[in-house]
Design a protein around this nucleic acid. Structure first.
Length: 276
DNA sequence: CTAATAATAT
DNA sequence: CATATTATTA
């Protein structure tokens, strides 16, 4: 429920913007309480009613799997320790979570975007470094794919013109597309000929002649990151073992719809990494 | 059954 | 941490 802002300002505000549209902690707590088994919630240290405060800024949406609930023991057991043999449900990268990921990567810069840092910046409780690493892997593959087909369009087959060949190795920066990849399929490829001589994307500091899109966040200069933390939502340290499991039912759809509303194109099924 | 995607192994 | 492989899901 934010009012629109101008594009220039949006660039500065966008990094905070998703914080707004993300489900608030207050909303997460009661929902998780309702859906999580009581003993499990207790084991995870999820507060019943009081002292909720800002222990966790958000939660990971996880696919529900009832098989792990009572993996270690009995129904009435009240051991406060979560069973370590508890297998974690498969993480579902909802559009919102993905956006958070993408924003973190963009803010860090593609060079400094490593799983651990990304995870810390995302500040999602329960999210593991491996989760991010796996997602980052696919994200890079996706970017590479996009870049390759972009370059292929520029240089058909065997005519590496000196201009192009010279500009190619520079390999500036990958255009980061937040909403583009959330669309089901790109019906029309916008950038058909990314002429390197004309393709000026964001570089290290602030050099850009060609802005990616309207109101889209751009990669932040590494200087800002070096001087201080960009932001840390709630916790700087993660609680080691257990994660707040939250079963999704409406969140997924709500997330899709919410994010889809941003780009204006909403689809039933959206893929985070369209393969084409 | 296949493709997509997340988890795990190297 | 990056890449390759395997497992699980849609």
């Amino acid at each position: 429920m934010r009012q629109e802002v101008s594009e220039e300002e949006a660039k500065c505000l966008t990094r905070w913007d998703w914080e707004e549209q993300l489900p608030s902690p207050q909303e997460l707590v009661p929902l998780s309480q309702a859906l999580i088994a009581p003993d499990l919630a207790l084991a995870f240290g999820i507060p019943s009613s009081s002292a909720t405060s800002a222990s966790f800024s958000s939660a990971v949406l996880l696919r529900h799997d009832a098989s792990d609930l009572y993996a270690s023991g009995g129904g009435g057991e009240d051991d406060p320790e979560p069973p370590r043999t508890l297998k974690r449900p498969r993480l579902v990268w909802t559009p919102q979570l993905h956006k958070r990921f993408v924003d973190a990567v963009a803010h860090l810069g593609i060079a400094n975007a490593v799983p651990k840092t990304i995870m810390q910046i995302m500040g999602v409780e329960g999210l593991t470094r491996e989760n991010v690493a796996s997602h980052l892997q696919k994200y890079r593959l996706y970017l590479k794919r996009v870049k390759m087909q972009g370059l292929a369009a520029a240089s058909p087959s065997a005519s590496p013109h000196p201009f192009l060949a010279r500009a190619a190795p520079a390999d500036p920066f990958l255009p980061y597309m937040p909403a583009a990849m959330l669309q089901q399929q790109h019906h029309h490829h916008h950038h058909k000929n990314p002429d390197p001589t004309q393709q000026h994307y964001y570089h290290q500091n602030q050099l850009f002649l060609n802005r990616p899109a309207q109101g889209q966040p751009v990669a932040r200069p590494a200087a800002a990151m070096g001087s201080g933390m960009v932001f840390v939502p709630a916790q700087t340290t993660k609680p080691a073992q257990s994660a707040p499991l939250v079963n999704d039912s409406e969140w997924n759809r709500k997330g899709e719809d919410d994010d889809a509303a941003n780009g204006g194109a909403r689809k039933r099924e959206l893929t985070l990494f369209p393969t084409g």
